[in-house]
Amino acid sequence: MTRYNFAYLNEQTKKMIRRALLKAIAIPGYQVPFASREMPMPYGWGTGGVQVTASILTADDVLKVIDQGADDTTNAVSIRKFFKKTAEVRTTEVTEDASVIQTRHRIPETPLREDQILVYQVPIPEPLRFLEPRETETRKMHAYEDYGLMHVKLYEDISQHGHIATTYAYPVSVEGRYVMDPSPTPKFDNPKMNDCPALQLFGAGREKRIYAVPPYTRVVSLDFEDHPFEVQQWDAPCELCGARDTFLDEVITDDAGGRMFVCSDTDYCSKRQAESEAAE
């Protein structure tokens, strides 16, 4: 049996994607079209992110894959397995140990470093799509910085809900120029994108778009002066580790309506639990 080429994609394809990545890094927040390949997994399973990861991965990398903040969900496990098999790279669940982190929703709670790359799997890269279905028009709007429509969406939120109800895919302005959709990341993580030491790469497989936020780039969540951007807050701390400053998931614990709120970042949560046990 012949072996896979390193990280599945052939070198030509990786080169093409790297060129798109370089362009994306050079124009922060700009959506670069690329010739998305068929991957051995369905769209919606992160084909865009997987192609980006495949193109940047080296044999020395340590890969972490998360889905909803967790390393042990089906999607995360299968992507990790995929690269273990096709690239034979080491994998980890520990944020600090990873050099490349592919994510579907969350940005790890552990602050990222300059020697790390965060790869996002993106379903819908176009922030203007909601109000303007014509691609020809949205491209012009980006080109001309014609972004009034983004605020129309936020206006509608406030007029219907009394506050900006958008909780994920919350639009951001990148380096004061392009408006970008960090979909489907919760807005809780938007502030982490700002001035982040790590390189952030976004891949949308079905939509054939790549975009990027270079290290230490200004990323500002759009808002109104009288309705400033706010992140979600929870009434109680994580029931497992006691963290008060993390993104919590609701977990159903039994079939009698029992539930609890715990950190969605499983690595961060278990690290905190271990630390507090050690301290006791």
């Binding site: 109000l131 009034g148 206006y155 109104f224 002066e225 009288d226």
Partner: peptide, 20 residues
């Protein structure tokens, strides 16, 4: 597909009105 208020407000927002 957006409200009357948003229809009127769009040109204002396109002209950098940022106070809801």
């Amino acid at each position: 597909n957006v409200s009357a208020g948003a229809n009127i407000g769009e040109r204002l927002m396109a002209n950098q009105w940022r106070h809801y």
